[in-house]
Computed example of a mutant assay.
Amino acid sequence: MNGTGKRTKRSKSRPEDELPVVPDTKGDLFWEMNKPGSEFKQNVIGIVVVRADGSIGYINPYLASLVGESPAEMVNEPLLDFVAERDRAAIADVVKDCVSGKRRVAQLESTVTHKSGKVVDVFIDATAAIFEGQSAAVGAVIDISARKQAEQALADSESKLQTALANMSQGLLMLDAEGRVLLFNSRFTEIYELPQDQMQPGMAMAEVMALGAANLNMRDMDPEGTTAELEKAIGGGKEGYYIHRHIDGRNIAATYRPMRDGGVVVMFEDITQKMEKEQALADSEAKLQTALTNMS
Rank of each mutant, 00 (worst) to 15 (best):
A206L: 06
T4P: 00
L173R: 07
A253M: 11
S55F: 02
I47F: 13
Q279I: 05
E109A: 03
G5I: 06
T127Y: 14
V208R: 03
P78H: 06
F123A: 13
E229I: 07
Q152A: 12
E132Q: 15
K277S: 06
L79K: 02
V264D: 05
T8C: 06
M168H: 08
A155I: 03
D248K: 05
A282L: 11
V208Q: 03
M218V: 01
A177H: 13
K41V: 11
R10N: 04
L154F: 10
L63H: 11
G46L: 07
I45P: 00
D197R: 11
S110D: 04
E278D: 13
N60I: 10
D97Y: 02
D156Q: 14
A137S: 15
L29W: 13
F184I: 01
G171E: 12
R88G: 04
R219C: 04
G225N: 08
N167Q: 14
G236V: 07
V112I: 10
Q198W: 07
F30E: 09
P20C: 01
G240M: 04
S38N: 13
G225W: 08
I91W: 01
Y62D: 02
Q273T: 14
R180M: 06
K118Q: 12
L182M: 11
G54E: 05
S110L: 04
T272E: 07
V141R: 07
K274M: 10
V21K: 09
R180Q: 13
I91L: 10
A213L: 12
P61D: 11
N294G: 01
L182E: 14
Q200V: 14
Q273N: 08
G133E: 11
G68C: 04
R180D: 02
Q198Y: 06
Q273E: 15
Q134Y: 08
Y256M: 09
E276F: 02
R260S: 13
I124Q: 12
F268H: 14
K102T: 14
A166E: 15
K115P: 01
P61V: 04
G3V: 04
A106K: 06
K160V: 13
A233F: 04
D125W: 02
T293E: 10
V119N: 02
L172M: 15
E69S: 11
A136C: 15
E278P: 01
T226Y: 09
A128Q: 13
L194T: 15
F30M: 03
E109C: 03
N217W: 03
D81Q: 09
L230V: 13
G68A: 04
N217V: 12
N43F: 07
V265I: 15
G3C: 01
R7N: 02
D220I: 00
V266P: 02
R260V: 12
N167R: 08
M295A: 13
H246G: 11
I142M: 13
V44K: 10
R245H: 14
I252Y: 09
T227D: 10
D220M: 03
V264L: 12
T111H: 09
W31H: 12
L182I: 15
G37K: 01
D121P: 01
N185I: 12
L79C: 03
H244P: 00
M267N: 06
E190M: 11
I142P: 00
R103W: 02
G117P: 05
